[in-house]
Structures are given as C-alpha cells and as structure tokens.
Amino acid sequence: MNNIIVYCELDEGKIADVSFELLTKGRSLATQLNCKLEALLIGDNLQGLEKEIFPYGVDTIYMADDKRLSPYSTLPHTSIVVNLFREQKPQIALMGATTIGRDLGPRVSSALKSGLTADCTELEIGDHEDKKQNKVYKDLLYQIRPAFGGNIIATIINPDCRPQMATVREGVMKKAIADPDYKGEIVQLDIEKYVDDTDFVVKIIERHIEKTKVNIKNSPVIISGGFGVGSAENFKLLHKLAALLGGEVGASRAAVDAGFAEHERQVGQTGITVRPKLYIACGISGQIQHLAGMLESSIIISINQDPNAPINKIANYVITGRVENVIPKMIKYYKEHTK
C-alpha cells in the first residue's frame, strides 16, 4: 500500500531503457518517502526478466504473464494496471512517455479518476499548502515539465487523487543500478481475475518493427538544426559534418514541423534527451522545450545569425553567422587537419 509502482514496458521481449530509468528515479523517490519500489511487468514469457529488475532496488515485481498480453494492446493492459492499482493503492505510478505509455497512461488515469502529467522532465517530493482550504499536503509528487510550447516551466501536483501519475520520456532520467544483489519478491498475478474476455476485441492484424535507423541518444557528437537552417537542402550540410565527425544529426521541433528532418531526430522535451560531448546548434533559437533535451551536453556551440538568440546564453561558443557559411569552413578545416 502507498508504494511507488513503475509500469515496465517490453520492447520485443526486452525491458525498455525508459523503464530502467524510471526504476532508478523511483528508487530514490521511494527511499525519500520511506516506501517500497514496485515494478509491474505485463507480457508473455517473462520468467528471468526479474534478474534485470531487482538490481534497481525493486522490492516487489508484479508479473502478468500470458500469451495474449504480448504484444502490447490497450484494453488488457489497462485492465491489469487499473485493477492492480485499485487493489494496491500506490501513491505514485510512473510510465514511459512512449507510444505505449501515452496510450495506456491516460486510459488508466481516466478509469481511476486520477491526474496524469505527461512528459515530465523532473520529479521531486515536496509539500503543498492550500491556503483557501487551509490545508497542508505533505510529500506530494512535484511533476515538473515545460509547458505551453516550452516557454515556461510548470510544477503540477495531484493533491487529492491517487496514484499521482506521470510519464517521462526516454533519456530524461539517468539509469543506475542500486545494488546488484538487491532482494525482492515476485508476485504472479492470476490473469483471469484482472482481464475480461471483452478486453481482446481489438485485434492486431499485422506488425512490422524496424530496426532503429537513427541513434542520436548515444551519439557523442550531435549537429542539430533548427528552423533557421532554412531548408531540407541546407540540412544536408549538417549531415555531411555529422558523418565526418562520427556524429548524428538532430533537429528542433520547428525544423521537424517544417519537414527539414525526420521526427526521430527531434531533440527536446517532446523528443529525445541527449548528453553528447559536443552539441552544435545550427540556427536554433533555443526554446525551453528544446534546451530541456540538450542542456547537459558537455560542450555547446551555437551558430546563429541572431547574436541574441536565447540558446547563446548556455553555449560555450557562439558563432555569429550563417549556417551555410560556417559549416563548410568547419568541414574544410577538419578534412585538412585530420587523417
């Protein structure tokens, strides 16, 4: 009761990175709240996966293991989560802000009439004083996220409803094993008690999963372009430099919306969070929602015509100039001075 439950997502039979990241965050919140950290795993053929989960400091793993539960489908997974939450009454529930978490989370929150905050960039514990009702709430989950097109940061709370639910994008939290020998217990759920036959009305006809083409999350060098790059044609310059430096091309949301780059390359709160050694921001003005996804890069270079672009404030180097002038010069120097 009153524990923290992380919904662990499976991706082709493997636990998704975002789930490990949430377990890591969940562990520190559980320690702070002096409650248990629990994981919920729903799928098929789950035996053995507990070995990967316990080291994150997980006290209980609920397993719903059934052929019909894989791949993910909205209704059966919702039923299990909702019924388990009704029974266990967690105070906090966390999910990845993935296509699965963003399909499941709202459905669960609606069924439980509890609040859900999407795409949080930080989760903290704190108190809240409701002056109107003269009431003090202890140890609430502060769900912190850029809001409103990323122009401000909002702290959201759920004072009265439980669980307090939040989704977090992959890469936002760091993953770290708490204790390789951590001991917890496994609770096998009796599926029949949680799922109804009518939950299987939506049928998966065909499924085609591609290998990830773009891997910017782990790239040490990212050349990222914004709306200021001007065209998909100019983006080719970024690709050229990225290929040369062994890096990847990223993009701001405005550049993706304008069709200059694929959605998989979007860096920011609603895209991917990255922490490369070098981040070159080309023609990116620097809305909070973008900065949230790249602030922790070791070295940031901003190339912008506007000397007052907000991103310049957090850059180590600011080059005032046009992207199509600067990048070829970088390429030329690099080619001439390395093997």
């Binding site: 609040g115 769900q143 809001a147 702290t155 004072p159 900065l291 180097y317 005032t320 100039g321 010069k329």
Partner: peptide
Amino acid sequence: SPTKVKKVDNIAFQSKESRTLDDFDEDID
C-alpha cells in the same frame, strides 16, 4: 480537475561564460 498547477516559472538558465566568434576563417579554424 485532479491536477493543479502549483507554480509556473520563467526559467533563467545559468549563463555560461561563452566565447563569441565571427564566421571568419581564422575564428572557425
């Protein structure tokens, strides 16, 4: 509405000591 906005901040990021360059060859080099 179960969710309440506790507060809203305009974020001021800690400015770094940045070096400003021009797009001249020698700066880029």
